[in-house]
Every structure is written in structure tokens, then in C-alpha cells.
């Protein structure tokens, strides 16, 4: 069976790949484009470690076929820091030790950024519910929620 020629935009760069029809976006990002920041924790949309945005919409890249992204815009954790400067969320996660093992961190960062783009001043409850699809087994979420709230405050001030 012949592969499909995929042309899409990832973190602002035009990229091309030859993909199988049933390959997921996550597999293509990780295995073909060498963008391994998105992780596979479950493969069923239950852990959020593979979170990316697709045309600005937060999705699990394990539940998107790569061919669906033809001509669309994908953003991953690798695109968050700009010009050598960390995104305020990345900086806050570091300052507040909002990560332990770090496997869920890219997903949380991408999801939190999507939240703050929609809602720059979320309550703690809104943060917790928005991030309910991102599992973290290490932290108990406490420091993650604080980091998101603090980053939001800083971004509102900036």
C-alpha cells in the first residue's frame, strides 16, 4: 500500500512526511519528525502526555491520524520557548518544582498554555478541571496547579 504525502506545519515550520493512513500524529511527530517531547503514556486519550494543539485546539496526538493534519497547524512543547527564552509556564514549573519525573510535563505545559490563551485568569477549580485529562503520578498536582496559577498571574501582569 502506498504511503500518503503529508504536508503540515509544526511549530511554525512547514514539514513533509510520508505516512501510513493509520499512523497517528503522535507516531509521526516522534518517529519521523524526531519531536519526542510529546509522550505516549496510554495510547487511548486517558493520560494527556501526548497533548499538542491542532489549529490552536488542545488534543491528544495519539487520537489524531497524521493524515488529518494535512495543511493544518500543529504546536508541540518544543515550540513553547521562543528565541532562547522559556515560556512563563516553563519558567514557573522550574521555579516551583512542579515536576518530578518529568514525563507528564510536556503535556501539562501544552494544556496549560491552551487554558491561559482562553482564560487568562482561571480559578484553582478551573485549572484542575481543565487539566483533569493530564495524569501526573508523582506530584499530587499541588505544585503544578500553583505553577499554572502563578504563571497566569505573571502573564496578566506582563
Amino acid at each position: 500500500m502506498s504511503k500518503i504525502h503529508l504536508t503540515t506545519t509544526v511549530n511554525g515550520d512547514a514539514v513533509e512526511a510520508l505516512v501510513e493512513a493509520d499512523e497517528t500524529l503522535l507516531d509521526v511527530l516522534r518517529n519521523q519528525l524526531a519531536l519526542t517531547g510529546a509522550k505516549e503514556g496510554c495510547g487511548s486519550g486517558d493520560c494527556g502526555a501526548c497533548s499538542v494543539t491542532l489549529d490552536g485546539r488542545l488534543v491528544c496526538s495519539c487520537l489524531v491520524l497524521a493524515v488529518e493534519t494535512q495543511g493544518r497547524r500543529v504546536e508541540t512543547v518544543e515550540g513553547m520557548a521562543k528565541g532562547g527564552v522559556l515560556h512563563p509556564l516553563q519558567q514557573k514549573f522550574l521555579e516551583l518544582s512542579a515536576l518530578q519525573c518529568g514525563i507528564c510535563t510536556p503535556g501539562f505545559l501544552v494544556a496549560a498554555r491552551a487554558l491561559l490563551e482562553k482564560n487568562p485568569d482561571p480559578t484553582e477549580t478551573e485549572v484542575r478541571y481543565w487539566l483533569a485529562g493530564n495524569l501526573c503520578r508523582c506530584t499530587g498536582y499541588d505544585k503544578i496547579v500553583r505553577a499554572v496559577m502563578d504563571a497566569a498571574a505573571e502573564m496578566r501582569g506582563a
Partner: peptide, 15 residues
């Protein structure tokens, strides 16, 4: 190892 882990650089078992 913090910056590597918030930027997606950190190399885990499947990476």
C-alpha cells in the same frame, strides 16, 4: 535537568 524536562529535550526510555 529541569530545562530539558520543560522543553521536551529530556530523553526518556522510548525517546
Amino acid at each position: 535537568d529541569g530545562v530539558d524536562k520543560v522543553t521536551g529535550r529530556a530523553r526518556f526510555g522510548a525517546d
